[in-house]
Design a protein around this nucleic acid. Structure first.
Length: 204
DNA sequence: CACCAGGTTGACC
DNA sequence: GGTCAACATGGT
């Protein structure tokens, strides 16, 4: 009998196909997006990215020096815009000062620790950056992942769930990227609201 | 009109 | 250690 998690991957892949995440043009865009999408729909983040782009604020250096008010207006549509603007700017200053490539090239544990030290970067945001900007194998646990796990009887906090996935799955960046993307795509469609009755997880 | 979105933080037990 | 309001706009 296949592990339910592996079964889930096959099921989602079959239903939704390859996702080729993260939707962004540069690594810095991934980083910005990871922060902005916290508790926010991706469509709103896309608009914010467009706004920032129009202001030429999609590089660490430019965003680090930008006026706070300008950033706030660009990202207002993502909610929590004041604290996000501050955090974006602090984060940009860090990446600008130390070099985005130099940072992303660091080994996973060191990189994760460094990202977590930034204000506004928690486990999910840090891991999203590591997986989709640094292209290193850490499994991202988001609210949908937690819900789905609970549905199939797997409990635990962030670290426990992450360990579960990483112990079970082959250590593959591409696979981690696809799996997390599929979970989010599925989650948006079926985990939200009252659509548990259409939940394909129950077939596992 | 209530509830939710690809969370994180700081305060308080 | 864990729990919880605050953060704020836009969509259903």
């Amino acid at each position: 009998m296949l592990d339910p998690i592996l079964e889930l991957y096959d099921l989602l892949l079959d239903k939704f196909g390859l996702q080729h995440w993260w939707p962004a043009e540069t690594e810095f865009e991934v980083i910005i997006g990871a922060l902005l999408t916290q508790q926010t729909r991706w469509e709103n983040v896309e608009q914010a990215i467009i706004n920032l782009k129009q202001q030429s604020l999609l590089t660490p250096a430019s965003l680090a020096q930008a006026e706070r008010g300008v950033i706030e207006e660009c990202i207002r549509c993502t909610g929590f815009y004041r604290q996000k603007a501050e955090r974006l700017q602090l984060l940009s200053q860090h990446f600008s000062k130390n070099g985005i490539s130099r940072i992303l090239e660091k080994p996973i544990s060191e990189l994760r620790k460094e990202l977590l030290s930034l204000k506004g970067v928690g486990p999910e945001t840090a891991d999203s950056i590591i997986l989709y900007a640094a292209h290193k194998p850490v499994f991202v646990i988001d609210a949908y992942t937690t819900r789905i796990c609970n549905c199939i009887g797997i409990d635990g906090g962030y670290d426990a769930l992450q360990r579960h996935f990483e112990d079970l799955l082959p250590e593959s960046v591409q696979m981690y990227q696809e799996f997390h993307a599929l979970i989010v795509v599925y989650g948006k469609e079926y985990c939200a609201r009252k659509r548990c009755d259409e939940c394909i997880i129950s077939t596992i």
